[in-house]
Design a protein around this nucleic acid. Structure first.
Lengths: 190, 190
DNA sequence: GATTATATTGAATATACATTCAATGAAAAT
DNA sequence: ATTTTCATTGAATGTATATTCAATATAATC
């Protein structure tokens, strides 16, 4: 393995550790030292791999934004809107156990969108357009008569805010059972 | 007005300002100086009124816990569970404009429950038992055939997590329209 | 009006961390 | 084998910010 590959590996290890901790304790309460200890590695070495703590967060959020984009690309084309959303939630909830990093990434993206988070990371996290594209999906569902009437954008924001809230609850208590995706899709259903 | 009363007034002013800022920017990102500037008052004087920033948070959370207790006391007795919850949400959403502090307090209580927040405040915020008492309400609703089957406690956690998510969204964007409370109660409805 | 208690200020201090750095070890290139 | 490059460490530095403090103003009490 070349040095470059090694370095890439190590960077990934740091990123995954940081992701865990950011979701577990929040960005501000996670100290560089905490990440270094968990990796494990000396504090100073962290800065050999990442310019700063914020840079680390930005890289994570970029990964998250990338993932979100590719996920929402073509997939939602044909199947009914309610099934699509149920499928998405079901998968995300099962990731909570099987592939926590996917789940964590989702939770982090939501957290970084909040005021008070580093501005650059925040912008990237908000650039994914998830709410907007779901609102189109909701419009479609409304025409098909399966979703409630009401401003689709507002419905979409509420839907995702609920999802965010529930995923944070699950992140906080890993023993919590996953809810039935239908419960949350009910928000939209007529 | 006696000095004691004056002091009490001033403390309240500080508490309300801090509440605004904690919800607006988050606890850690709100500096004592920010609060002092907003009140306004000198930074040093803050410590004449409150021992520490954490003490300030604790006092807020105590107020919130107190309010929660009295709100949930007798009120929920007779009316159907769904109406009770809809009424609660409707009121909370309208407070977002009319009496922001009530709304903010609710949002803060949710935020403080998260890991990484000061431990003492967190304990108090978690002691309110809202989730538990709502789960009883949900059991009742299930018996009456208006709510979904499923673990009432889990339903309650999901319900409140959704509410929390939506309220944080509203707190983040004060121009956001309030959702129809029925949307959220739909999570529970059969 | 003099004295005492409280409110207020802004600068000084303490602390917690992010970040830098000089030194050392290990691997790669020559 | 020597040199060069990169990895690694732990201690030093810098910075942000909570907290303290000495000094001053204002209000209450006598």
């Amino acid at each position: 393995m070349t040095r470059k590959e090694q370095k890439e590996e190590r960077r990934k290890a740091i990123l995954m550790t940081a992701l865990d901790l950011f979701v577990e304790k929040g960005y501000y309460d996670t100290k560089i030292t905490d990440i270094a200890t968990a990796v494990p590695m000396s504090t100073g070495l962290m800065f050999h791999y990442f310019e700063s703590k914020e840079e680390l967060l930005i890289e994570l959020v970029k990964m998250g934004a990338e993932g979100t984009k590719s996920a929402s690309a073509g997939d939602m084309a044909d199947i009914p809107a309610d099934l699509f959303l149920k499928g998405f939630l079901g998968q995300m909830f099962s990731y909570a156990k099987e592939q926590p990093w996917v789940f964590n990434m989702f939770v982090l993206m939501g957290q970084v969108r909040r005021k008070g988070m580093p501005e650059e990371a925040r912008k990237i996290a908000m650039s994914t357009g998830t709410v907007e594209s779901t609102s189109m999906l909701i419009s479609k569902g409304q025409k098909d008569g399966i979703f409630k009437d009401g401003d689709p954008l507002l419905l979409s924001r509420c839907f995702w805010a609920s999802v965010q809230g529930i995923m944070e609850e699950m992140a906080m208590d890993r023993t919590m059972a996953a809810p039935d995706p239908e419960w949350i899709v009910s928000i939209l259903r007529k």
